[in-house]
Amino acid sequence: MAIEEKWFFDPSTGGIEQGKVSGWDKRMGPYDSRAEAEDALRIARQRTAQADAEEEAEDDWGEPASWEK
Rank of each mutant, 00 (worst) to 15 (best):
M1V: 13
M1E: 14
M1K: 07
A2N: 14
A2Y: 05
I3G: 05
I3C: 07
I3H: 05
I3N: 04
I3W: 07
E4Y: 08
E5D: 14
E5V: 02
E5Q: 13
E5G: 03
W7V: 00
F8T: 01
F8A: 04
F8D: 02
F9S: 00
D10Q: 09
D10W: 05
D10S: 07
D10C: 13
P11R: 03
S12F: 10
S12W: 04
S12V: 06
T13H: 08
G14A: 03
G14L: 09
G14W: 12
G14C: 06
G15V: 12
I16F: 01
E17G: 00
G19T: 03
K20P: 02
V21Y: 11
V21F: 10
V21E: 11
S22A: 06
S22C: 07
S22R: 10
S22D: 05
G23V: 14
W24P: 10
W24L: 13
W24K: 13
W24D: 15
D25P: 03
K26W: 04
K26Q: 03
M28G: 00
G29V: 04
G29N: 08
P30A: 06
Y31D: 07
Y31T: 03
Y31R: 07
Y31W: 08
D32C: 02
D32L: 12
S33C: 09
R34S: 05
R34C: 01
R34N: 01
A35M: 10
A35H: 08
A35G: 03
A35V: 03
A35E: 14
E36R: 03
E38C: 01
E38V: 03
L41M: 14
R42N: 11
R42E: 11
R42G: 10
R42Q: 14
I43T: 11
I43K: 09
A44L: 15
R45M: 07
R45K: 13
R45V: 04
Q46K: 10
Q46R: 06
Q46M: 04
Q50N: 13
Q50H: 13
Q50W: 07
Q50Y: 14
D52A: 10
A53Y: 05
A57L: 06
A57V: 06
D59F: 08
D59A: 11
D60S: 11
D60L: 11
W61Y: 09
W61K: 14
W61N: 10
G62A: 11
G62P: 02
G62R: 05
P64Y: 13
A65C: 09
A65D: 14
W67A: 12
W67L: 12
W67Q: 08
W67H: 12
E68H: 08
